[in-house]
Simulated assay, not measured.
Amino acid sequence: MTTDWSQERILVLAPHPDDETLGCGGLMSKAKAAGAEVFVQFMTVGDTADQSPKGFSTAEERYAEIKKVADHFRWDDWHMALPGDEYHLRLDAVPRVDLTRIIEATSPLSVARLRPTTVIAPHRTSYNQDHQVTAEAVHTALRPSDRALRHHPRLVLAYEEAADQWRLEHAPSPNLIVELSEKEMGDKLLGMELYGSQSHRHPHTRSDLTLRSLAVLRGMQAGVALGEGFHVLRCLA
């Protein structure tokens, strides 16, 4: 499978700010360099207890980080669907139909309004409840139907994150590897560094070494130096 990224309009679904960079930062760099359009739909953000030196990050800090990352990757646009502590890490309390409607039709970056050619979302096997329900809502929003009535993205992928492997029954190995250059790998690492409240030293699932190690592993599996792994959910040739 060879994709001409220059012809793609890509919609990335991220439960929280940084998931898009962890999951497909290299692909976003590659696609933008080729001439693609890249849009990021965040689902939620709020004040967060974390493992940073001060022990927490505010929503305002996270928004400032998003703006830096958006400039770095040259996104065409981004949107936050459900901001606030009412939703952050509590998306599993939101009715599935409401999440699905946001992704399918009501968001400014919805599938119906944006009409992306490629959609990239988290994988269902993540341990994080926000990731799980986002993945399920995307699955529902992109259900098969008459293409004359509803937009069908040609390519639908699920990205992986290193922390997702912390499950007894985790996903099988990705069945699509996107080769990354050293520059694209560097863009991914810098994007994660710009999320200062979420970036950590090794050993941590969001450390530079973890991200590079996963890229080395996925690249090796495809016979190249570096790669990002994805699960193909739909591909219309």
Rank of each mutant, 00 (worst) to 15 (best):
T125I: 02
G196D: 14
R62V: 09
P116T: 12
D164T: 10
T100I: 14
E136C: 05
Q132C: 04
G26E: 11
L168V: 15
L11G: 01
D19W: 03
K183D: 13
P122D: 04
P172L: 06
V12Q: 02
L189F: 10
G229V: 14
S199D: 03
H139N: 08
Y87P: 04
A148Q: 11
E161N: 10
A225P: 12
T117H: 05
K32M: 06
L27Y: 04
D92A: 05
V224D: 04
R201Y: 15
A93L: 11
T58F: 09
E182W: 11
G35W: 03
W5E: 06
D4F: 11
A105N: 10
F230N: 00
D187F: 00
R147T: 14
H123S: 12
R74K: 13
L27F: 06
R101Q: 09
F73Q: 02
H131Y: 04
G227K: 01
G84Q: 08
F39M: 07
M28R: 07
T117W: 04
E86G: 08
S6K: 09
A59Y: 05
T117N: 06
D164P: 08
K32I: 10
V38L: 07
Y63I: 12
V45C: 10
L176I: 07
S6V: 02
E8A: 06
A148W: 09
G25C: 02
V97D: 12
E86N: 03
H200N: 07
L89C: 09
A70Y: 02
M192N: 05
P153Y: 00
S110R: 02
G227I: 03
G25D: 02
I102G: 05
A81E: 14
Q51Y: 15
L27R: 06
T210F: 03
E37K: 08
L82I: 07
S181Y: 05
D92Q: 09
